[in-house]
Design a protein around this nucleic acid. Structure first.
Lengths: 187, 187
DNA sequence: GTCGCAATACACCGATCGGTGTACTTCGAC
DNA sequence: GTCGAAGTACACCGATCGGTGTATTGCGAC
């Protein structure tokens, strides 16, 4: 028990339920009643912990972000190229699952539409963090244009996510494209 | 007035309103009341032309598809490489608009979640058509692996769309990546 | 033991959801 | 002139939406 939070409690269960339900069925499709029921938390408690549904969405994305940060990373001692490929391997693995619904951040921003929504801001920050992580690996590999390569890898990442959502599963063409870009940039 | 349709009528106005509203605010966020109001069509008429809201969604995607088919295509007499780049130029132009909300097909499939939903099927078909179009251009350019290249171009297309939605605008890295892939495949 | 906080149960709010029933108007074809 | 199809107006349905008010309970700290 930390100094700020005395109990593990209801808030965490709400966030966990939000991660599951919002991802599986969509943010608009899940009402607060169902969310509370699934979390086994009273509606009143929800509004003691959060300002409203929008606030729950943000908390859910932040929890997702923390969990996803080091998704398929083999570790800092591995060569940068392997670490980059590890991320795409993890995505490919996740995309095989029937329950895969794409990147939750892109999904939230897409469904919310409003770029000024707090959750859209969180989504933007997460994507920028992913690109920055790619750029660090590119610099470690002494790439001439690390930022351009990082952006392109992010495009492929989100493109592969969209592919999985719309068509199901994954394609070997993704990994090939990653290799081509890496080679072209001299990584 | 054609032989099949005697009047321009209410159905077209509903589809047009659906294209605008569903794209701008999201499918779940727009109710049938608002849809009818915006189309200046009575609610009763909607249910005389469509089986339900889901049916309107499908019709809206089909209309979008027909409009988008030859989006930025300079024409069949242009070299295949230019025609491919033309599509990405059109996307880049569209992404500059403040109202850009990504590919409507990916957006619909993302928001609907259910892959069995008729609209999800329509979305899948449209994406497959785009990939097939890329593959035709690749074959015209005598590429060794036309299907792989076509898939990769589709990944970049959807990745760039997601980029615009989450971060706003477009990036020059997209066009560079298209060039790299085209070169690597010998197009 | 008792105080205070976290959490609960549950009724309730106005608004909106997708969808329907019924009666009326408009208008072109014949 | 009349008939049928297309469209409109509007009330209505049960369900659900996000959110609140009120009263009660379980439980650890002191």
């Amino acid at each position: 028990m930390s100094a700020t939070t005395r109990k593990p409690g209801a808030r965490d269960r709400l966030v966990a339920a939000a991660e599951r339900l919002f991802y599986a069925d969509g943010i608009h499709a899940v009402g607060v009643d169902r969310l509370c029921a699934e979390a086994e938390v009273s509606k009143r408690s929800l509004y003691q912990h959060f300002a409203g549904k929008d606030d729950v969405i943000v908390a859910m994305l932040e929890a997702r972000g923390a969990a996803l940060r080091s998704m398929g990373d083999p570790g800092a001692d591995a060569p940068p190229r392997e670490r980059v490929l590890g991320v795409f391997d993890a995505l490919e693995r996740a995309a095989q699952d029937d329950g895969f619904r794409g990147c939750p951040f892109v999904g939230a921003a897409t469904e919310l539409k409003d770029p000024a929504h707090p959750a859209s801001v969180t989504a933007r920050q997460h994507k920028e963090a992913l690109t920055a992580w790619f750029a660090e690996r590119a610099r470690e590999a002494d790439v001439a244009e690390p930022d351009a390569l990082a952006l392109q890898l992010t495009l492929l990442f989100d493109g592969a996510s969209a592919y999985a959502v719309v068509r199901g599963g994954s394609t070997a063409a993704t990994r090939q494209a990653v290799g081509i870009l890496l080679d072209a940039h001299g990584a």
